[in-house]
Write a protein that binds this DNA or RNA. Structure first.
Length: 534
RNA sequence: GGCGCUAUCGUCUAGGGGUUAGGACGUGAGAUUCUCAAUCUUAAAACCCGGGUUCGAUUCCCGGUAGCGCUACCA
């Protein structure tokens, strides 16, 4: 296949909007949080559904705040969620040192020359102009405008400078920004989730496209011989979206007010505007924008807490989108891909519900294969188990059984150590000290039951199997007439330290098998003897 | 202040000019279990307010209110 021809025909089809091309364009200034992850997910689903292309672009024009480690983390998080991209930047330290895609580079810091070129064009065509206003002048103007009209717009006075004045300023070495000249007509765009949106031209004012040098210190040169600084977000994003032939811009609704500026940029270049879809904000329980103080928000934190990626993906999909039947709640990525449509995305903001996420996580935890759970949970037991590669098979098997019993009782895997702590060690004094336990143990029946149980333990050889235990319980019940809670609770406390927990017939083998493994796990006999005193 | 977006159970949502306004999470009750969890059954729980259009509005239109966003040479 001739690459050049293939590209040309592909490109033509792209231009005719026969293909869908979307992008996820994060700034590597922090960890990927659920809001952005949901944006990435919707982009990905939309692309996959349409058989289109999902592009990853890194918006790192804010060099003060951008960090390479965040970029790497971001890619790891996307992969963990199962969101693969078709085009994207060369990964620093990644498996491949090849850039994917023909519309690169995919990092804005590597596209500065492209922006500079386009700015020259706008300047030459009179669609943009140099603004020599100082920050102080602008500030004063803003205050005046705010007091007078309640609006803060730029007067556009540098747009009326004569060429002589411009030459003079340039010769004097005055720093300048580049502003777009806004035409006097409403700026409209179509939004797939909100319909037609329109802004009056005067509220947009002549926006800055390129910062002056003063604001671009320490940044890489915009290009050879260029006297300009670094472009602002709205400008770079619009150029990139156009040049990367993005057909649908799906992003957070905090960008709605930015969109008319970008539409004006598209118009200035004579480009066709893409479709937009603005996704609502994710809020915390107090209706404020979701943030760290509400709890976990970054994808990597959820991962560390032992949430399954399919649970998070499912939850995020449901947050702002509903299935067509109005009923289905659980979706695999595959099912989502088939069911998803932007038309069904809700425009209203959504409150992040940790309880529902937990429910979905429990759901997927129950479905997960034992070996996978073992691999995921191992890290939480680093101080109790040998490392996975140095671990004897019997220990591995035992651990899987332990998980099978206790995973259904947790919301996320990091709750496992505390749930299972009593298996690995037994603290009789703490068990007695517990108030609820003390109430149970205070009863005469409890003393009788425990004495009976201890007698049988002493007379017994070998592990206490579920069958042996059952027989003892039946005997004690028959001998003493004690049954139900009065019978079981004291025994449970003597073995586990708590009056509630998993079923004895599954729990006992875990304890007795564990005791035989050399992990320091006390046997049932050890426990009971220590508890009642020998 | 200006501009914009949004508004159905506590939460996520379905629906839509006439409905018993549906589902899910959570909550309450019951069943089961030695107990907890799980599971099953079940209950309570919503159309922001005011006007207009209409025979009829929760649904369409306008206004109000509230929440959120933007209002930077941040992204």
């Amino acid at each position: 296949m001739g690459c050049g021809r293939a590209f040309t025909s592909y490109h033509r089809k792209v231009m005719e909007r026969k293909y869908v091309r979307v992008r996820f364009a994060p700034s590597p200034t922090g960890l990927l949080h659920v809001g952005n992850a949901r944006t990435a997910l919707y982009n990905w689903l939309f692309a996959r559904r349409a058989g289109g292309t999902f592009v990853l672009r890194i918006e790192d024009t804010d060099l003060d705040r951008s960090e390479v480690r965040y970029e790497a983390q971001l890619m790891e998080d996307l992969r963990w969620l199962g969101l693969d991209w078709d085009e994207g930047p060369v990964e620093t330290g990644g498996a491949s040192d090849e850039e994917r895609g023909k519309f690169g580079p995919y990092r804005q810091s590597e596209r500065l020359a492209i922006y500079a070129e386009h700015t020259e064009r706008l300047l030459a065509e009179g669609k943009a102009y140099r603004c020599f206003c100082t920050p102080e002048e602008l500030d004063a103007e803003r205050k005046r405008a705010a007091a007078w009209r309640g609006q803060q717009v730029y007067s556009g006075r540098c747009g009326r400078l004569s060429s002589a004045e411009i030459e003079q300023n340039l010769a004097a070495g005055k720093p300048f920004a580049v502003r777009l000249k806004i035409e006097d007509h409403p700026l409209r765009f179509h939004d797939l989730v909100r319909g037609e949106v329109e802004f009056a031209p005067e509220v947009v004012s002549d926006p800055i496209l390129v910062r002056s040098r003063n604001y671009s210190e320490g940044l890489p040169s915009a290009g050879p011989g260029s006297g300009m600084g670094v472009p602002v977000y709205n400008y770079a994003a619009a150029i990139d979206d156009a040049l990367m032939a993005i057909t649908h811009v799906i992003r957070g609704d905090d960008h709605i007010s930015n969109t008319p500026k970008q539409v004006a940029i598209y118009e200035a270049f004579g480009w066709r505007t893409p479709e937009f879809a603005h996704l609502s904000t994710i809020l915390g329980p107090d209706r404020e924008r979701l943030s760290k103080r509400h709890g976990a928000t970054s994808i990597s934190t959820f991962r560390e807490m032992g949430y399954l990626s399919e649970a998070l993906v499912n939850y995020l999909a449901l947050l702002g989108w509903g299935a067509e039947d109005g009923k289905t709640e659980t979706f695999t990525l595959d099912e989502l891909t088939r069911a998803f449509s932007l038309e069904r995305v809700t425009p209203s903001p959504a409150i992040f519900d940790f309880a529902k996420l937990d429910w979905l996580n429990r759901h997927y935890l129950k479905l997960a294969a034992p070996a996978r759970l073992a691999a995921l949970a191992w890290g939480y037991f680093a101080d109790r188990l040998p490392s996975p590669d140095a671990c004897p098979k019997p220990v591995k098997d035992w651990f899987e059984k332990l998980l099978a019993l206790f995973v259904p009782a947790v919301d996320h895997l990091d709750q496992l150590p505390s749930k299972t702590a009593f298996v690995f060690g037994f603290a009789p004094d703490a068990a007695r000290a517990n108030q609820e336990n003390a109430a149970v143990l205070a009863a005469d029946s409890a003393r009788i039951v425990l004495a009976e149980f201890a007698n049988r333990i002493r007379a017994h050889e070998g592990p206490v199997t579920a069958e042996v235990f059952k027989a003892w319980i039946d005997e004690i019940k028959a001998a003493t007439g004690i049954k139900g809670k009065e019978l079981f609770h004291p025994v449970r406390i003597a073995i586990t330290g708590a009056h509630s927990g998993r079923e004895f017939d599954k729990l006992l083998p875990i304890i007795e098998d564990g005791a035989a493994l050399g992990l320091g796990i006390p046997s049932v006999r050890d426990r009971v003897e220590r508890f009642v005193g020998v």
